[in-house]
């Protein structure tokens, strides 16, 4: 059962990573405009004059 000592922290760390990533996404405003983000990708396709946002 010694494998548990390794697997449990690993599982928890991975879960925690997901949580932190979600909270970061929430904080950085990625959940503010769910409709716009889906469409925005279709328009930001010309890199020579930069994407739609500065």
């Amino acid at each position: 059962m010694n494998i548990l000592l390794f697997l449990i922290p690993l599982a928890l760390a991975l879960g925690l990573l997901g949580l932190v990533a979600f909270l970061w996404a929430l904080r950085s405003g990625q959940f503010d405009d769910l409709d716009g983000a889906a469409h925005r990708i279709l328009f930001d396709d010309d890199p020579q004059d930069g994407p739609g946002q500065p």
Binding site: D32, D33, L34, D35, G36, H39, R40, F43, G50, G52, Q53, P54
Partner: peptide, 22 residues
């Protein structure tokens, strides 16, 4: 949304222009 953001970023001095579609 794209047009508005483009029109605005083309103006001198604009640092941030973003339309929330929702």
């Amino acid at each position: 949304v794209w047009l508005i953001e483009r029109l605005l970023t083309l103006q001198p001095g604009v640092t941030h222009a973003r339309v929330n579609m929702t």
